[in-house]
Computed example of a mutant assay.
Amino acid sequence: MRRPTLLILAHPRSDSLTAQVADRLRLRIEEEGGTVDLLDLYAEDFDPRLTPVDEPDWEDREKSYSPEVHAHMDRITAADDILVVFPVWWFAPPAVIKGWIDRVWNYGFAYGRSKPRLAGKRMLWLGLAGGTDADYEKTGLATAMDVQLRVGVSEFCGITESSVRLLHDTELSGVPRALRSARVGDVLKAADAALDEHLPH
């Protein structure tokens, strides 16, 4: 049986390949006895802008943030596994993900404690990248994303079981229509493999 999972989806279109991957993984986790809290940042109209009410107060780690942020904190707390599915835009996650981290993974909650509150959770960042694996490795972009997300967010907040996995060649516009279904199938299989490898039973 899988552990309770918070699945974060970040794509504006419900028919996108990113959304298909998230739906595939949600169904798999549920079929295998797990529970999934799907947090679709666009569908829930999450506001990524950091305003003073959610700005960290370095002199008060017990600060009360906005009700929206505390509701998201509760959803993170309730999960054992955190799975973030996103498209890679400009070699990084979409801005809404950055804004979600800025507002929700806040001082006193995700970091700033002698005993990290998120320790013991597992986390997988699953990005859909249009470019090839070779291109990302050659330019160092894969390493840059790994350091930014795994080290800079997950490990900084006490999540030591964390990984970044990119699904490559996901841009379908240059693929002949007759071959697109097979390409989508390959991407979904790669997503399955990432789930099994990085968030096993």
Rank of each mutant, 00 (worst) to 15 (best):
G185Q: 03
A79I: 12
Y65T: 04
G158L: 13
A191R: 04
R3Q: 12
P4C: 07
D37W: 06
L141E: 10
A190E: 14
V96Q: 05
A110T: 12
R2Q: 09
E59A: 07
A10G: 11
R180F: 08
G33M: 06
V85D: 04
D146V: 02
I101A: 09
G99A: 09
L128T: 12
L50G: 13
A78C: 07
L149E: 01
S154F: 00
G185C: 03
D74P: 02
I8E: 06
A110S: 15
L195F: 13
S16I: 08
T18D: 03
D169A: 08
T5F: 10
R49H: 12
S14F: 02
A178C: 11
L6N: 00
A95C: 07
H72R: 01
I82Y: 00
P56Q: 13
Y65R: 14
S163M: 06
D169C: 11
E44I: 09
Y111L: 03
S163R: 05
M145F: 07
P52Y: 08
A191N: 05
A78G: 12
L128M: 11
G130M: 14
D169F: 04
I101Q: 13
D45E: 15
R13T: 08
H11T: 06
W125R: 00
A194V: 08
D23I: 05
G34L: 05
A10L: 15
E44M: 13
T160R: 15
M145H: 04
W90M: 05
G174F: 15
P116S: 10
D23N: 06
Y42R: 09
T160F: 14
D186A: 15
V104Y: 07
F156C: 00
Q148K: 11
V36L: 02
S114F: 11
T139H: 10
G127C: 05
A142T: 02
P94R: 06
R75H: 03
T139W: 10
E161S: 00
L188G: 03
W100H: 06
D40S: 07
L50H: 14
Y136A: 01
R103M: 12
R165N: 06
E55F: 11
T5V: 10
V84H: 00
A10N: 10
L188W: 00
G33A: 07
G174V: 12
K63A: 05
